[in-house]
Amino acid sequence: MIFLNARTFKAERAWGAADITEIDTATVRLHWTDEPYVWHVNDGPEVFAVLDGAVDMHYRRDGEEHVERLTPGVVCYAEPGDEHVAHPAPEARILVIERKGSL
C-alpha cells in the first residue's frame, strides 16, 4: 500500500509528480506546481482532481478562451482534442489520470 499526503507533497520543480500507479494504459500521478503548464492538446482523455489549492483551467472552445476555477472536490475531464492549460492559483496539488506517455 502507498500513502501520500497531498497537502504536504512538494516536487523539486513545477509539475513534478509522484507516480502512484499505472492502470492498464493509464497513469495516476500526484502533481505539485506553482507555475502554469503550457497550452496543449492530449491524444487521450485526462482527468484532473485538485486535492489542495486551486487551479484556473484555461481552455479554448470555438476559438474563444474560457477559464474555470478548480478547487478541492472539483473534477475536470478533458476529452481528446480539448486545448487547455492549467494555471495554479498560487500553487496546487493535483491528481491527474491520463494515458501513459501523454503530455
Rank of each mutant, 00 (worst) to 15 (best):
V67Y: 02
F48N: 09
V50L: 03
V50I: 08
L30H: 00
H31K: 07
N42T: 14
A54E: 12
H31P: 10
E68C: 03
V74C: 10
Y77L: 14
D34G: 10
R69E: 02
R69A: 11
G73F: 06
V74T: 15
L51V: 13
G53Q: 09
E68M: 09
L30P: 03
T25L: 00
V75N: 08
H58P: 00
E64M: 05
D62Y: 04
W32D: 07
V28A: 15
Y77R: 12
V74M: 14
V50H: 08
E68A: 12
D56H: 02
G73A: 07
V55K: 03
V28H: 09
P72I: 03
V38T: 13
E35N: 10
G44T: 03
V74K: 15
W32G: 07
E65Y: 05
E64G: 00
N42F: 01
P45S: 11
D43V: 14
W39T: 14
G44E: 03
V47E: 06
R60Q: 12
V41N: 04
V55H: 06
E64Y: 03
D56K: 04
R60M: 12
G73Y: 07
H58K: 01
T71A: 10
P45I: 12
E65G: 12
L51K: 11
P72D: 05
D62T: 10
N42V: 09
V38S: 09
L30E: 01
H66K: 14
V28S: 13
Y37S: 13
F48A: 01
M57F: 10
L51S: 09
V55C: 06
R69Y: 02
R29Q: 11
V50S: 05
G44R: 02
V50K: 06
V38Y: 07
V41K: 12
E68D: 11
H58G: 05
L51G: 14
T25C: 05
R69I: 05
F48K: 03
